[in-house]
């Protein structure tokens, strides 16, 4: 499904070049559950941004479902993010002025899904994450774990091929973290491809496979 080959991502900082990713080669099959581990600054967030088409590699190739994503136009990358990629962030990034339902509807709003269908699919997605009774609550009325579950519902509502989670438990207490991880496990069990960035070994251990990054390189694979 996804193949990264000889991928480099280089930033120019002042006069010197900083390599956030060095020669990364990685394959992710459909239905995989991959954890990307490593200390902060090791390049795992950069990897996630490239996988999510938010960032472009400096060199190397990235194929998504057989398409070379490094070469396609911004419009096509936007389309890909809209339909094929779901994001979950450490700080949830819910819009505080919208209800849980409104937040889950957001990706469909920009995809041009009709109002009635948006509502139906948002309610379904919130039911799937166990928040049927919190549909009309705003983020400030929800706990951290509930917020992250809303964010997960939002990430999967477009039925993307790939779900990317950047430290999804990094801002949660232990109980809420377990809840969120069980949710991600269950989604993967239903066939959802999940790539997870974390530096929590316990979280990483739940994934079926894992890579460890250091200084922009993959130094260990499991």
């Amino acid at each position: 499904m996804i193949a990264l080959r000889d991928l480099w991502r280089t930033y120019h900082v002042g006069d010197s070049d900083v390599h956030a990713m060095r020669d990364v080669t990685l394959e992710i099959a459909k239905g995989d559950y991959l954890a990307v581990m490593g200390p902060s600054g090791s390049g795992k967030s950069t990897l996630l941004n490239i996988l999510g088409c938010l960032d472009r590699p400096t060199s190397g190739s990235y194929t998504f479902n057989g398409r070379d994503v490094g070469e396609i136009s911004d419009t096509d990358r936007t389309k890909l993010r809209q339909t094929e990629i779901g994001f979950v962030f450490q700080f949830f990034h819910l819009l505080p002025r919208l209800t849980a339902q409104g937040n889950v509807e957001l990706p469909m709003l920009f995809a041009g899904v009709a109002r009635a269908e948006r509502r139906r699919r948002a309610l379904d997605a919130l039911e799937a994450v166990g928040l049927t009774d919190r549909v009309h609550h705003r983020p400030d009325q929800l706990s951290g774990g509930q917020c992250q579950r809303v964010a997960i519902a939002r990430a999967v509502v477009m039925e993307p091929g790939l779900l990317l989670a950047d430290e999804p438990t990094g801002n949660l207490d232990r109980a809420a973290a377990v809840e969120v991880m069980e949710l991600l496990d269950a989604m993967n069990a239903d066939g959802q491809t999940v790539v997870l960035v974390t530096h929590d070994p316990e979280v990483g251990a739940r994934a079926r496979s894992a890579v460890r990054m250091d200084d922009g390189e993959i130094v260990e694979r499991r």
């Binding site: 938010l54 419009t75 993010r81 809209q82 990034h93 819009l95 957001l106 920009f110 477009m158």
Partner: peptide
């Protein structure tokens, strides 16, 4: 918010 909307596929 703008970053999020872009990540969610807003053009």
């Amino acid at each position: 918010e703008i970053g999020l909307l872009k990540a969610l596929g807003a053009s």
